[in-house]
Design a protein around this nucleic acid. Structure first.
Lengths: 96, 96
DNA sequence: TGAACATATGAACAACTGTTCATATATATA
DNA sequence: TATATATATGAACAGTTGTTCATATGTTCA
């Protein structure tokens, strides 16, 4: 079994917390294909803008999404290759 | 992008909740190699028996661990191939 | 049966989390 | 500058979660 720092598993738990909420995981899933603006995400998930912005901040702090501003609009996209793989594996699991 | 039932992402979030707590993820990690009794897990994680039992029940209900009784002792082990892969991917992510 | 040991479980409590509401900030344009 | 639009953020609140404590259940053996 691979050795690693004893804090690693705490960090792993922190990572998985991001995926442990259906709003955040649905946000991430909408970003699988392409970047989207905040308001586009709101429409897709049918949720209010404040709730989405709060969750986007959490995802950004965890470096799972990144954003860029274009005028008034802010576009978000996945910031990590692992995100796609981890969620895909989760989907695979529950679909069995 | 793969199509699936709209409830799937909610189920995925539920799945990841299991990995979103450091106690549970450390329990699962102790079971990577081999089955362990409840008291062995308590010693390894230096936590009291009640806390461990409560978390084991959560993991069992989610079908991530299984158990077998041998006299007074109950042994727990991983019940799902995906568990190993999902946690490994999480470890890989945070170690970069 | 009774004592000892291993594990499970319910209740209670503190800590944490996600959403809403109100409002602030940033940008574009008239 | 004033207004409209898009996004961000702080405070408050309800709901959820993990641990502890006390106790129950299950098993072995004397």
């Amino acid at each position: 079994m691979k050795k690693f720092n004893e804090n690693t598993l705490y960090d792993v738990a922190e990572l998985f917390k991001n995926f442990a909420d259906s709003t955040r995981i649905r946000i991430l899933y909408t970003l699988f294909n392409k970047e989207l603006s905040v308001s586009e995400i709101c429409e897709l998930l049918n949720m209010n803008q404040s709730a989405i912005s709060h969750q986007l901040r959490i995802l950004k702090n965890s470096k799972l999404v990144k954003n860029r501003r274009e005028g008034k609009t802010v576009y978000y996209s996945l910031d990590d290759d692992h995100v796609y793989n981890i969620i895909s594996q989760g989907i695979e699991h529950v679909e069995e």
